[in-house]
């Protein structure tokens, strides 16, 4: 199902907020930030804390374990990278460290019935080429 494709849209740079996140994926590290002032978990990455406005933040590495918050199974996409994939699952995953990421759920035979809200998942990295970023996807834990 969701295999790598050269046509899949990639993050684009320069984009200073998200570049450290994607740079870390080259080492298969899933990074998130916390605020040094109010301790809130920050995601998606930003140079400030959206809870308190602090400019002092720290990067942390997630273990990559979490649960499906919600999902949708796409049966019709006109995008060249996805139109011939067959049904594939888009999801929000809640990581145990407290942040919510959009991703794909992979390695399921029947995405509509084999995925459920609350289902435990773990990281499944999809390399995008030698020296390139890797996409953090998730599969049933």
């Amino acid at each position: 199902m969701t295999q790598n494709s050269p046509l899949r849209p990639q993050p684009r740079f320069p984009e200073p907020d998200t570049e450290p996140f994607w740079e870390a994926t080259k080492n298969r590290e899933l990074k998130y930030q916390t605020c040094n002032s109010c301790s809130e978990v920050i995601f998606y990455p930003r140079a400030h804390c959206p809870s308190c406005g602090s400019l002092e933040t720290s990067w942390n590495t997630s273990k990559g374990d979490g649960a499906v918050y919600t999902y949708s199974v796409i049966l019709q996409s006109r995008h060249p990278a996805f139109k011939d994939l067959g049904p594939y699952a888009l999801a929000y995953v809640d990581l145990d460290e407290g942040f919510r990421i959009m991703s794909n759920i992979v390695n399921v035979a029947d995405p509509v019935n084999d995925i459920s809200c609350g289902m435990r998942v773990k990281l499944n990295w999809h390399d995008q080429g030698e020296g390139e970023i890797a996409l953090p996807m998730f599969e049933p834990a």
């Binding site: 899949r8 990639q10 998606y44 930003r46 996409s77 995008h79 594939y88 996409l135």
Partner: peptide, 12 residues
């Protein structure tokens, strides 16, 4: 930032 975190997943 949001495009960079959302574009790769094939979201329609």
């Amino acid at each position: 930032p949001f495009n960079n975190m959302e574009d790769p997943w094939g979201m329609t």
